[in-house]
Design a protein around this nucleic acid. Structure first.
Lengths: 198, 198, 198, 198
DNA sequence: TATGAATGAGAGTTCATTCAT
DNA sequence: AATGAATGAACTCTCATTCAT
């Protein structure tokens, strides 16, 4: 959670700023992180930040955009694979856990700071989030229609149940805990699939 | 989420302040809520606030203390009931959903603003939270030891899985949605119990 | 133009701030005057300024409101007097010169900084200004209708002609110049009346 | 007041910059206009601006120099004409009105932004302004000495009276108002001449 | 002749908190 | 028990200008 930021080396300034902001937003929260802290952590001046980003909020949005893009791409790949629905859902469910643990900072920011975005940007992020949710739900529904998943619970609720646990990871997961990220991922995917047994 | 606050009536000033603060913290976040806004919403002056509370942070802690107390009491009651373990877990799992929905503002604050507390107070809240978690975990383990719940997943993880979905409620639950709070609670408890089938 | 400001004495803080702001706005212009300079000149802190005024712009508006109020009152008094129209116009025309010279700072600010007000406040000031203009015009028209003033020039234009010269005072008038303010006032009023001879 | 600026065409870059700056200074004031806005309006980059002009202030001074040169030339022409003094003054007085209305942007900048120049440049502009004033005053005095103008008012004051109204034009004159610029000019010149009748 | 990344100082404003009353 | 004036530090953001290319 506290990787060092390259403050003067070869990494381009915008990336340096984004990395520093991500770390600080995750550690201290968006409102508690001052622009001054960000530029100091990135080894540049305020002017440089405002040369590349229109506002502090833009930095936050960039963090969102990056993680959303990544997760959507991965979900699409797993969902489109040529495998049985049970397997595709299990792998997608496990992958989102692994990816989230790999980017715990982004995840923490995502779920904690979304309400700091202006209504306009918030709407945009929610829309992309919705698209992600629906792709996942389609997998659940596909299995329900095929009769391999129980229909006892509405698919929407099933998805929210699983995403809740993903969301929660940044609260309790520690890299030095008893379980590796893959083990956690397998367990959580397993819980989902077991709950869906007819 | 936006109940009116009694700004001048008979409610004692400290309660009025707490109610106003809860609503505003949930709506706009802790950092985005100014002390001025709180006292205006409560119909008192700054001096009055600082007469009853030592700081803005104290208000936040009071919100936590209240919700933690309430949830611990309810969990204890369900866990100590004289019923089969399967039923006790189901009812505890459903109740925490209902209680959370009944106090969505508190829940939103809880999961979003904990890092705004000073390290000392944070530690205290985490300790109480831990106690709550462990009581819940004990229920799962009891069922596992009795052979009615699967032991495929560590009990800790099971608890985090469920709490994740509770935590997530404030993100997606809307009172005017298709499901009543009781229906949501039953579904989520059902998912938990189904996942625990041996 | 550079009266000393009471920085710590008995004058109430709002007045001190207004006096300091007036002097600095006149000397350096609104945009060139920083809030920091104002509070230093008034011997208070920024917090105190924002306790009494909502913004820097509010200070500017207060300067306007004060001078508009004063001038309207005086004009009304002269216009309502029980004297021949020729005399009433002459005295009103001379008085606005004297009053303007007495408050050269306000006048300089008035004509130089009005466009710094937000559209909303600008509109409000223009409306009050318009009222003043129309009262003055009514005097000219009264004389024209009575046949004592020439109708060769539209009354509106006559008023703008005179006010232009008043406006211009802050550009050239110096207290240590060859003419006293009363002499200047009499000359300018005389020019107006002479121009209006049939 | 808002002529479009040729942002990419054949007009040389310095002229384009000057035109854009003039329009923006008049619309928003000197301090409120950023160098960035000027170069964007002119369709060039900052580097280009600083290639041709040493500073933002230099742009302002160029605007002044241009209008001063123009007005001095025209006044000299009218003053030197071979006509009776009464006619020469009337025509000069009317011409400055027409020229000012033709360049209302420059006029607005002139009277509002002079104090934004550095002391050195300010002094220079005032000196040229003084020369213009004195040429005009000489006309008044010539008529007074010839007995065709009243000597009741000092010539200096007469000139300031007229210039005040010229200065004031940018405050009230609107191209779509009831009077054409020529009509306004004739009226204002007439007021001056009528005031000077012995 | 022109670019545009980067600077660094300073802008207006907000805010939790204190304290004399 | 309660007021509200005042503090002072921190906040986000702007801007004219420079300079390597």
């Amino acid at each position: 959670m506290a990787k060092a930021t390259d403050t003067s080396g070869t990494t381009p300034v915008p990336q340096r700023l984004l990395a520093a902001a991500t770390r600080l937003f995750a550690e201290n929260g968006y409102d508690r992180t001052s622009v001054q802290e960000i530029v100091e952590a990135a080894g540049v001046t305020k002017g440089a930040l405002y040369h590349y980003f229109g506002s502090k909020e833009d930095l936050l949005q960039e963090v969102y955009a990056r993680v959303l893009r990544l997760q959507q791409e991965r979900l699409d790949a797993f969902a489109d694979a040529d495998e049985p629905i049970e397997r595709r859902l299990r792998e997608a469910a496990a992958d989102v856990v692994v990816t989230t643990i790999d980017n715990l900072d982004d995840a923490a920011i995502f779920f904690r700071s979304m309400h700091h975005l202006s209504p306009e940007k918030n709407k945009q992020v929610r829309a992309e989030r919705r698209r992600y949710h629906e792709r996942f739900r389609a997998l659940v529904e596909e299995g329900q229609n095929a009769g391999v998943f129980s229909t006892a619970t509405p698919a929407d609720l099933v998805v929210d149940y699983h995403f809740g646990s993903v969301h929660h990871l940044s609260t309790w997961y520690r890299p030095d805990g008893p379980l590796t990220q893959q083990q956690v991922a397998d367990h959580l995917a397993d819980l989902l699939l077991r709950a869906l047994r007819p």
